[in-house]
């Protein structure tokens, strides 16, 4: 093997070894699930509290929290977050309403109010939250170094 080839290989190795470094996510993303529970106040009324999901039953209202942070010193452009709705969950809204959704497994996207569902008989109807399969937040601006935020959506256990 001549020196030129050796150089090429070492460059390739260098490039390959640099990939994990890039993927070591200067932007951090974390996911969390909480459950809304009704707690009885001393006066007998109920308040809704967020609890750790120690006990989950059909019909429970879950709150999904996705946190993001740009931990690097470089801006992250065209930042977007996608979250598939778990199969056992019926989507019931986001806290900011800024999301676009998919009702076909992530193939096409739009605001929920703009999407239509085709019925078997050829007619169509407006899409409902129960049709949503994926959520996506497309941040319009660049995520500057150190920027952080969270996205919240809710769903009901089927």
């Amino acid at each position: 093997m001549n020196n030129f080839l050796k150089l090429c290989f070492s460059m390739i190795l260098l490039a390959a070894s640099s990939v994990p470094a890039m993927a070591a996510a200067p932007v951090e993303l974390s996911s969390d699930i909480f459950v809304e529970k009704q707690e009885k106040r001393p006066d007998g009324s109920f308040s809704t509290v967020l609890a750790k999901p120690n006990l989950i039953l059909p019909g429970d209202q879950l709150v999904f929290v996705v946190r993001y942070r740009n931990a690097s010193n470089k801006p992250a452009a065209n930042f977007s977050v996608t979250n598939p709705i778990p199969a056992a969950i019926t989507f019931s809204g986001t806290s900011d309403g800024a999301e676009i959704v998919s009702i076909d497994g992530g193939k096409s996207w739009g605001k929920l109010s703009q999407l239509r569902v085709n019925n078997a008989d050829g007619t169509s109807r407006n899409a409902l939250m129960t049709d949503v399969t994926h959520l996506k937040w497309q941040m319009k601006q660049t995520l500057a170094a150190g920027d952080a935020g969270k996205l919240i959506f809710r769903g009901v256990v089927k």
Binding site: M22, A23, A25, P26, V27, L29, S30, S31, I33, I56, L62, F64, V66, Y68, S72, K74, P75, A76, A77, N78, F79, S80, V81, T82, N83, P84, P86, A88, I89, L143, L151, V157
Partner: peptide, 22 residues
Amino acid sequence: ITNIATASYETGGTTVDIDSNP
């Protein structure tokens, strides 16, 4: 019930996809 969020962004001209913790 498993939830994983995915983020996508561009830095240094490269598109990066990352997954959250499941």
